[in-house]
């Protein structure tokens, strides 16, 4: 095992898949000459050339449509959208075309497409560049939506996404690119399935259900809680669609208490959807109401002080856990 960054792990996945399969290519804004806005694709242009590492104009609608059409034509495109915020300009093609064609045309066309895009806040990028939209896309039948939290998963899940026969939205978090983690050596081939979550930490007192960057914050919270005798189980969902329902229901049946921790907005979002599923499937096992930690219900402010206040923190999670875990636990 080596320790590499999330960014490098993604690049390795792209490289390896491009070497494995000539139909795989990557396109996007400033991915070739510039090396990618977040430097994920750095060096790929030099290695693979213009045919397979394609810079595109700033035109999200047509580049998304082009990736869809290329997939229909027998290729395996990886499309990098500079941020998920720009995907809104391509939402029609993602929702009305990529997600629909297989069904709408009676199972004839297949769209093996990966759209990679960073999301999230925390870097003072302001209201239009700090959003979480996984719940929007997770709402749509016909798509897969995944959000790996670690370099290991980033590499293994991206490789699985490229090999998947469906359109996969691969949502990265911009504050994760520089985190480091253990990843098998370059000559060790591995993939990580797209449909499974993972228990990051075992615990008996409460389940913290989370994904993407909040998985790390949740683990820090669990670490602190353990010092006070509260054992939190941390589940990293990894995939928004499909949802690994049995993994989380099993955990709820054991701990009987749930805190959902996410960075996105509260209302009509991912967490509320998960809460409804838990109530539907494990109501009888619940000993306390679900606690829901989210970003503040405001457009993201620029000011460092305000942005910090808008993002969910370790302290928020700890407070939520303590609100539902009886005080005798750990005493």
């Amino acid at each position: 095992m080596r320790t590499i960054t999330y960014r490098d792990a993604l690049r390795e996945a792209i490289r390896e898949e491009m070497w494995r399969d000539e139909r795989v290519f990557i396109m996007g804004e400033d991915i070739a000459g510039y090396g990618g806005t977040y430097a994920v694709t750095k060096g790929l242009f030099e290695e693979f050339g213009e045919k397979r590492v394609r810079d595109t104009p700033l035109a999200e609608e047509v580049i998304t449509g082009t990736a869809i059409g290329a997939a229909l034509g027998g290729l395996r495109p990886i499309l990098e959208l500079m941020t998920i915020n720009f995907s809104l300009l391509a939402t029609d093609l993602i929702v009305n075309s990529a997600a629909k064609f297989h069904y709408m045309f009676g199972g004839q066309p297949e769209i093996p497409l990966v759209i990679r895009m960073p999301s999230g806040g925390g870097a003072q990028r302001g209201a239009q560049h700090s959003q979480m939209f996984e719940s929007w896309y997770g709402h749509i039948p016909g798509l897969k939506v995944v959000m790996p939290a670690t370099p290991y998963d980033a590499k293994g899940m991206l490789k699985s996404a490229v090999r998947d026969p469906n359109p996969v939205l691969f949502i990265e978090h911009e504050l994760l690119y520089s985190i480091k983690g253990e990843v098998p050596d370059e000559d060790v081939e591995y993939t990580v399935p797209l449909h499974l979550g993972e228990v990051r930490r075992l615990g008996r007192d409460v389940t913290i259900l989370t994904f993407s960057r909040m998985a790390h914050i949740s683990l820090q919270a669990a670490h602190d809680l353990a010092k006070e005798g509260i054992e939190a189980e941390v589940i990293d969902l990894k995939s928004i669609r499909p949802i690994d329902i049995d993994l989380l229901i099993d955990s709820v049946k054991k701990t009987n208490r749930v805190v959902i921790a996410e960075e996105g907005w509260k209302y009509y979002g991912t967490g509320q959807g998960l809460a409804a599923l838990i109530y539907e499937n494990a109501f009888d096992y619940m000993d306390a109401p679900i606690q829901h930690i989210t970003g503040a219900d405001v457009p993201m402010p620029y000011s460092k002080a305000l942005e910090r206040a808008a993002l969910p923190t370790k302290a928020d999670i700890i407070k939520a856990v303590k609100a539902i875990v009886p005080t005798h636990v750990g005493v």
């Binding site: 449509g65 990736a67 059409g69 290329a70 034509g73 495109p77 029609d92 093609l93 075309s97």
Partner: peptide
């Protein structure tokens, strides 16, 4: 395909043509 979103077929056609070129 017939597309019921006006003009959606143009970007997709560009992609199918790209695959032929590729």
């Amino acid at each position: 395909g017939g597309n019921a979103i006006v003009a959606a077929q143009l970007p997709i056609a560009v992609g199918v043509a790209f695959s032929a070129q590729y």
